[in-house]
Amino acid sequence: MEEVNRRRFLKHATVATAGVSLAAGCLGDDEDDGAEAEAEDDFPTDNITIVIPFGEGGGTDDFARTVAGAADDHLDVSIQFENEPGAGGLNGTQDVVQAEPDGYTLVAFNPPSTPTSWLVQQPPYEIGDLEGVATVGRFPYIIYANTDYEIEDFGDLIDRYEDGEFSQIAGQGVGTMVDVVARTLRDDVGLPWEDYIAYDGGGEVTEAVMSDEVSVGIGTDSGALAGAEEGRLEPIACIPDGGSAVFPDLESIAEQGSAEEGDPIDTLAMLQPSYWAPPGTPSEHIDVIAEALEQATEDEGVQEWAEDTGNVVEYSGPDEASQLLADVLETVPDVVDLDEVREEAES
């Protein structure tokens, strides 16, 4: 209808000079619209920034820099990474929620981790408004210790806590997914730690354990790999049932007889690396980035990294990523007593 009215206007405007001027103005608008449309079609024309809302060296950081880092080969622009740790991933995530929805700023986090932190801490923004871009893999939390203690298995670890050899456990910030997992290990599985020592990111947790600043910690299997290869960190158990691709011989706590298969810990402790865009980002831009990420998961270098590290790399698209976030926000409150976590975090 708009185009028909414009033609009628141009036809009748030729009878007067003023009308000709107006028509010329309309034609100029058409040219501007065409230029804008062409620019939209050319997306991206500038570098894309992926905010990693944790410190360097953790599982989220490793996955993003390896997988998403390979996507720039398919975009003709560079992908840049910014680590913005704090509040269990919520500070960097907030920056992206509030960023310009133009497709040039994304955030990487791993449901159910950061969405659970959001449910616990209730910051003044809606994480559920983020637009899903892609999920690119999965990995579990594991529990590990400094190698000097020669812990045999999860049962031995429980005994040592009960004997008073250990009282602390290290993990990411209070109110984060790792905090929730640690509380579940204590309350439902029987690991009697007393003091939770919080760090900004998984890399800091592994460093603390390797240096024996804290003797036992919880983190991702991929984030623990370097420390294990150096011989300074010993994986004790995979927390969820199903095991670890990074440490294929590592038994789960259920397999070691300290939990039951299907316990809530299984829901909480398996992470899915994913990418998200600010609310309102055009779907056309999201699709371009998602396609590049899909191609990146198939790159030879990424596949070699997955094989060498044992990380599971697998792609699903924007709809699946959006559904994953919605599912986590709906189901975690049924699994976790969020009020209790808040109260304990505040005490």
Rank of each mutant, 00 (worst) to 15 (best):
residue 258 S to G: 03
residue 182 A to L: 09
residue 237 A to W: 01
residue 259 A to Q: 07
residue 151 I to C: 08
residue 237 A to M: 03
residue 234 E to D: 15
residue 250 L to G: 07
residue 165 E to I: 03
residue 181 V to T: 10
residue 131 E to F: 14
residue 189 V to H: 08
residue 247 F to Q: 02
residue 179 D to M: 02
residue 234 E to T: 12
residue 256 Q to L: 12
residue 218 I to K: 02
residue 208 A to T: 11
residue 226 A to M: 12
residue 219 G to H: 11
residue 167 S to C: 05
residue 175 G to K: 07
residue 197 I to D: 11
residue 143 I to E: 08
residue 242 G to F: 06
residue 204 E to H: 08
residue 131 E to T: 15
residue 225 L to P: 02
residue 157 L to W: 12
residue 155 G to I: 07
residue 218 I to F: 02
residue 238 C to M: 04
residue 194 E to C: 01
residue 222 S to G: 09
residue 164 G to H: 02
residue 150 E to M: 14
residue 187 D to F: 00
residue 238 C to G: 07
residue 222 S to D: 10
residue 227 G to A: 01
residue 180 V to C: 04
residue 197 I to H: 13
residue 147 T to F: 11
residue 151 I to G: 03
residue 190 G to W: 00
residue 206 T to Y: 12
residue 173 G to S: 12
residue 245 A to W: 14
residue 160 R to H: 04
residue 238 C to T: 07
residue 181 V to E: 06
residue 184 T to G: 04
residue 218 I to C: 03
residue 244 S to T: 00
residue 225 L to N: 02
residue 134 A to V: 03
residue 168 Q to F: 15
residue 235 P to H: 01
residue 193 W to S: 11
residue 135 T to I: 13
residue 247 F to C: 00
residue 163 D to C: 03
residue 250 L to C: 04
residue 206 T to M: 10
residue 219 G to R: 09
residue 243 G to F: 09
residue 138 R to P: 05
residue 221 D to L: 09
residue 131 E to H: 15
residue 144 Y to L: 13
residue 234 E to N: 12
residue 155 G to Q: 10
residue 221 D to P: 06
residue 236 I to S: 00
residue 158 I to P: 12
residue 254 A to I: 02
residue 217 G to Q: 07
